[in-house]
Write a protein that binds this DNA or RNA. Structure first.
Lengths: 128, 128
DNA sequence: ATGATTTTGCGAATCGTTCGCAAATAAGGC
DNA sequence: GCCTTATTTGCGAACGATTCGCAAAATCAT
């Protein structure tokens, strides 16, 4: 069973995520921990990320190469991301047009929308 | 170098894609070929898919599990997909609002949009 | 502190994908 | 059609990310 034990590894992993507000791979997190002299196994990084994801504390994203990356997130309101290709910085973007899109899909295709993925790529202000 | 030899395996793989207008994994294509008594190696399936993708004949999509899937596509106009969760049927969706979104991102975030991913999931008319 | 339960670390296993290389096949000129 | 040359194929091995099994260590509640 899965419980909510507060452990050193979990705190350290959450700490790395808090320090870098962008999508990080398990390997990147593991490397960051090593550099901070925190000895946490890669398995634990994976398991903790899955744990945080199931709690809704973390968002998972597949990058272009198909690798999983993770970032802390506010599960509250649904939104999308504008991701800088240069530095990885992530800005939240709300999409007001979704209701209209759902309506249009139903009307033109008979398609019942129940989920979507959307993300925007480009260059953020400071990287320009 | 990469050339455009017309070979039996390439025709057979394209045939499978033509017969199933939805996103297929390399393994699914390989299985379909076996069932049709076409002996094509999995490596060749992968290589041919990459070849077709580089020609612009095929679109690649990472599914929820991070596996690559492929579908024939018209490279002509940019569009998005409405994918049925039940049967995998794919309908094209054009997104007229993109220009506005780009403008809004530039104005509010200073973000220079140069790419995006968008897909819509739900249930198609015939699966409802 | 003690005991019950969960988490960790380790290495091995798994799965999709890529690679190296020799054998087979296609294209073009004879 | 046959030969030459360049490309593609099949095979098995290698690879990288992720998962798993299990014994040891850590957490929580008493």
């Amino acid at each position: 069973m899965r419980a909510d034990y507060v452990t050193r590894p979990r705190e350290q992993i959450a700490g790395v995520l808090r320090a870098e507000p962008r999508f990080l791979s398990a390997a990147e997190i593991h490397r960051a921990l090593e550099q901070a002299s925190a000895r946490v196994s890669l398995s634990t990084v994976y398991r903790t990320l899955e744990y945080l994801r199931s709690k809704g504390d973390v968002t998972e994203r597949l990058d272009e190469a198909g690798e999983s990356t993770f970032m802390l997130c506010e599960p509250a309101h649904h939104h999308h991301h504008a991701i800088c290709r240069v530095c990885g910085r992530v800005d939240d973007v709300s999409c007001a047009a979704l209701g209209q899109i759902a309506e249009s899909l139903r009307a033109t295709l008979g398609f019942e929308l129940d989920g979507h993925n959307m993300e925007f790529l480009g260059t953020c202000r400071s990287c320009r």
